[in-house]
């Protein structure tokens, strides 16, 4: 598939791919929409309505951009356009492309490791129950419980949406100063830049007016780890990467504290259990 423009001059990975790895399909969709806005192929109104510019029909550089351009033909709210683009077939194709390149974990593999996590959970409580009810040797029960917990932790790492190679790619990218599309890919439109108290949303840096920026929504939590929505939190399972990949979308993840209302199970980032579906790319959905 067409991978689009490279990110900050780095060959081998496009801005959309970088966005996907850093923040999921919502982030990739944001990259596509922003590139079209920057290229004058889309325009945005004060109310946040994004519409295709009449003469820009043939200007899309990637399938994701082509989808966004077509979807904006009749005018869509910025948030809706990003969401629609993030759930399009073009976004699925981009995901599959990243799976094929070994950068993103396939759905089947994620489901397998999710099942292992559930089985470990069951084994842990079964060991405790056997000790209490059937007086199983305490040492054996403790051993089983510890192994179950360790295996569950390992399975949690293995089911992270982005593979080590993908995280490595994200780490290698250095977004150049002034690379506005790269900034979106790295932090998302709802990312924050600057130092307190002079912090700004990325959409503000791009010149998007507040009423239009208000149409962007943080992604709702997705419980089903098998659907594409889980990819939104590609870099959040590991809180070490939340600071760049997720901090833009959920400050709670960046600090390693609870994902709070956006976490699907309310568990903490450090456990790696829930951030994957609650962070990253949130601006786009």
């Amino acid at each position: 598939m067409t991978s689009g423009t490279t990110i900050s001059g780095r060959p081998g990975i496009s801005a959309e791919e970088f966005g996907y790895l850093a923040g999921g399909p919502g982030r990739a969709a944001e990259v596509a929409v922003v590139r079209l806005l920057e290229g004058g192929l889309l325009r945005i109104s004060r109310e946040g309505v994004v519409s295709a510019v009449a003469s820009g029909a043939a200007g899309a550089g990637t399938p994701l951009e082509a989808y966004a351009l077509g979807a904006a033909r009749t005018g869509r709210m910025l948030g809706d356009l990003v969401k629609s683009t993030a759930t399009s077939e073009a976004a699925s194709a981009l995901r599959q492309h990243l799976v094929d390149r070994g950068l993103v974990v396939s759905d089947a593999r994620r489901k397998t490791w999710s099942t292992v996590r559930v089985l470990c959970f069951v084994a842990f409580f079964a060991a405790i129950a056997l000790t209490i009810v059937f007086r199983v040797h305490f040492g054996v029960a403790i051993g089983v419980a510890v192994v179950a917990l360790l295996l569950r932790w390992f399975a949690g790492r293995m089911r992270r949406p982005v593979r080590r190679a993908g995280r490595r790619e994200v780490g290698r990218v250095k977004v150049a100063a002034g690379d506005r599309v790269g900034m979106v890919a790295q932090m998302g439109l709802l990312g924050r830049v600057g130092q307190f108290p002079r912090m700004y949303y990325v959409w503000e840096m791009l010149g998007i007016v507040p009423s239009a920026g208000a149409t962007l929504r943080r992604r709702k939590p997705v419980r089903n780890s098998g659907d594409t929505g889980t990819m939104y939190g590609s870099s959040c399972n590991s809180c070490s990467s939340c600071s760049s990949g997720c901090g833009a979308d959920n400050s709670g993840c960046g600090s390693g504290s609870s994902c709070g209302s956006s976490g699907d199970s309310g568990s903490s980032c450090s456990s790696g259990s829930s951030c994957g579906s609650s962070c990253g790319g949130g601006g786009g959905d």
Partner: peptide
């Protein structure tokens, strides 16, 4: 027109 407010 609302669609081109910023343009105007």
């Amino acid at each position: 027109r609302p669609e081109i407010d910023l343009t105007v």
